[in-house]
Design a protein around this nucleic acid. Structure first.
Lengths: 200, 200
DNA sequence: GAGCAAAATTGCCCAATGTGCACATCGATG
DNA sequence: CATCGATGTGCACATTGGGCAATTTTGCTC
C-alpha cells in the first residue's frame, strides 16, 4: 500500500500520535488529558494532530487497526481451488492474530469505560472488515454467487466480534483483563466454522 | 422500557432534535449547519442539545435507532419450543422492518458522503444489535450452549449489514436511491437462513 | 386541587476543539 | 538540480463541550 519514504513518514507520524493518545488514555483516562498533551508527548504540533485525526477518540481507536498487510503472501501459500470457507478460516487464523485481538479487546474494554470512544472503535473494526472482505473477494472470483462472499464474511466477522465482546462481560465493574484468557481463539474459530460448514 | 410521561417527553425532545439534525443534513449537508441551527429548528436551547448528544453526528445518526419495542408481543405469538433459528428469523422479519432498513440505508449512504458520520452510524447499529440480541437470549434459555446465541446472532446481523452495504455499492458516485429496490429483504432473509440452516 | 421532590431545560461562561489560510520543508519525479 | 506536490507548522477564529446554578416541568402524595 505505502509506496515510498514519504508515506512511511506520514504513517509514522500518525502512529506516534495514536500511540501517545492511547497511552495517555491508559494513564489518565480519556478525559484526563487534552490534545495538547498528546502532541507534546509525540513531539508534533496541535495542528498536525488535526491533519490526521478529527478528535482524541479517533486517534485512540486507530491504534487497534492492524492492517491486512501482505495479502499476496498469505494467499500464495493456499491452493487456488481451496473452498472459500477454508480460505476464510486461514485468513482469520493468520491475519487476525491473537496479538491484534488483544489490542482490539483492550480498546473495546476502554470503550465501555468511555462511551464516546465506542463509535470510533466500531469505525476501526469496520475498516478492518472492509479490508479483509476485499481480500477474500479477490480470491473468490466467480466461483460463488455474488451474495456469498459478503454473507459469509459478515457472518464470520459478526461471530468473532460477538465472541470478543463476550469475553468482556466476564469481568464487569472491576479492572479488565488485558489478556483474553477466557477465550481460546483458535478453537473458537474451529467451532464457529463447524457451525458455518454444517449448519446451525 | 419507558416508565412514564416524563420519559416520553424526554424522548420526544431527543427525537425532535435528532430529526431536525437529520433534515438539516439532508438539506445543507453535514457541514452546512451548526448546532445552533438544529436547536433553533427544533425549538430548544443549545445547552439542551448538549444534554442529549455530544455532537451533531450523534444526533443525526440516532434517527435510525428503531427500538425493539414490544418484545413480549412478538414472542407471545411464537411457540415456546420453536427452534432458535426460526425465532430469530421471525424477529428479523417483524422487528427489522423494511421501513427501519430504509432509514438505516439512507443513513449509511450519508455516512459515505460525510466520513465523520460513519462511526456514529455504527454506534447506532451496535445498540440495535445488543437490544435484539438480549431479546433473543431471553427466549433461548438453556436450550443451547452459551456461545450459540451470540454466534448465531452475530452471523445474521453481520450478514444483513453486509447485504445492506452491498445495495449502496450499486449507485456509486451519484445520488443514492433512498429505496433499496435492489434488495428484496424478505427473500434475502430466506436465502441467508437457508445458508445458516444447511451450511455454506 | 396543593405541595413537594426529582428531573428536564435553560443561560452563562470558558476551556478545548476544529479548521481555513499562509508558509516552510522535504520527498518524489524527471 | 529544479520543479512539484504533499506534509508539518503557526496563527486566528468560529464552534463546541460541559460545569454550575437558576428556572420550569413532571410525577406523586396528601
Amino acid at each position: 500500500m505505502d509506496r515510498g519514504l514519504r508515506d512511511l513518514k506520514r504513517e509514522a507520524t500518525r502512529e506516534a500520535l495514536a500511540k501517545a493518545a492511547f497511552e495517555l488514555t491508559r494513564e489518565r483516562g480519556l478525559s484526563g488529558f487534552v490534545t495538547a498533551d498528546v502532541v507534546e508527548r509525540a513531539g508534533y504540533s496541535r495542528r498536525t494532530f488535526g491533519n490526521h485525526f478529527s478528535c482524541k477518540e479517533e486517534a485512540v481507536a486507530s491504534v487497534a487497526f492492524g492492517g491486512v498487510d501482505d495479502a499476496s503472501a498469505i494467499l500464495a501459500g493456499l491452493p487456488a481451488d481451496l473452498p472459500l470457507l477454508d480460505v476464510l478460516l486461514a485468513v482469520m487464523k493468520t491475519q487476525f492474530t491473537t496479538d491484534a485481538l488483544v489490542r482490539m479487546r483492550e480498546l473495546m474494554a476502554m470503550a465501555r469505560r468511555y462511551p464516546t470512544l465506542e463509535p470510533h472503535v466500531l469505525g476501526v473494526q469496520q475498516r478492518m472488515r472492509h479490508t479483509a472482505q476485499e481480500l477474500l473477494g479477490s480470491v473468490a472470483g466467480d466461483r460463488y454467487p455474488t451474495v456469498y462472499v459478503p454473507l459469509l464474511f459478515g457472518a464470520v466477522y459478526g461471530a468473532v466480534m460477538a465472541a470478543l465482546e463476550g469475553t468482556l462481560d466476564v469481568d464487569l465493574g472491576g479492572e479488565y483483563d488485558p489478556s483474553p484468557a477466557s477465550m481460546d481463539y483458535s478453537s473458537f474459530l474451529d467451532i464457529t466454522f463447524d457451525y458455518l460448514r454444517h449448519g446451525f
